[in-house]
């Protein structure tokens, strides 16, 4: 092709390329916005998302949602904000470990009693464990399907429960998590759901009684569930 003709062609194509880039940018922005909206909808449909259960204060009956990983303390930015006598600003870190329960790592100088025994470096709390933090006495109520042993465990090792205490409402029974679909197409399942379609996401609560609103939730820590 002659130089002149190529010049004209290339200079004409400039506008095409800018158009492509602009379209690309536009689609990206739209994608991100739609995704964000989808996420918010998901969070609303799954109010418990990210939590493994609740800590219930035996005296005041206040319920604190327990995240998978977080902090307990009297500071405002703690995930579980416990205000009481003897509660440090940052009292302990908690981290949920599948199979072992809720790992509790007290901060230096913080006193925690797990089922009556003091926690030295770290301990794992199982279902219905009793935690005494300062003057507050809390019971750990884990979600039914969460993989955790009953009662408390000490140290990092896994001690099988001495006995399984069945509760009247079936809370103490450990139900194993559904099998991960390792053999199937992981990519297809790992999606945000219907991010781009106008369709509603699959409603997991279809046919199930709605969660009672107005739960006595303490507004602890950052507003992590709201965007």
């Amino acid at each position: 092709m002659s130089q002149e003709a190529f010049r004209l062609l290339s200079r004409a194509m400039r506008y095409v390329f800018v158009l492509i880039a602009a379209l690309y940018f536009l689609l990206t922005v739209l994608w991100m916005r739609r995704d964000q909206r989808q996420w918010k909808k998901e969070k609303k449909n799954l109010p418990d998302a990210g939590t493994v259960g609740e800590l219930v204060d035996e005296d005041s009956l206040k319920r604190y949602p327990v995240p998978r990983e977080g902090t307990i303390g009297s500071a405002r930015r703690c995930d579980i904000r416990v205000i009481g006598h003897g509660v440090k600003r940052l009292h302990a870190d908690i981290r949920f470990a599948d199979g072992k329960g809720l790992m509790i790592i007290p901060a230096r100088g913080a006193k925690i009693l797990l089922n009556g025994e003091p926690v030295s470096s770290r301990a794992c709390a199982g279902r219905d464990s009793r935690l005494k933090i300062g003057s507050a006495s809390l019971v750990l109520k884990l979600l039914k399907n969460v993989d955790a042993p009953a009662r408390g465990v000490f140290g990092d090792g896994y001690d099988p429960p001495a006995e399984v205490v069945p509760g009247a409402d079936g809370w103490a029974r450990v139900v194993p998590l559904p099998e991960k679909h390792a053999g199937e197409n992981p990519g297809e399942d790992w999606s945000w759901g219907d991010e781009f379609g106008a369709e509603e996401p699959e409603d997991p609560f279809r046919g199930v009684a709605p969660v009672p609103s107005g739960r006595a939730m303490d507004d602890g820590g950052e507003d992590e569930t709201q965007e």
């Binding site: 002149e4 003709a5 010049r7 004209l8 200079r11 004409a12 506008y15």
Partner: peptide, 9 residues
């Protein structure tokens, strides 16, 4: 503008 280039060619 680009149009001029086109015209001249």
């Amino acid at each position: 503008p680009f149009g001029e280039e086109v015209k001249s060619v």
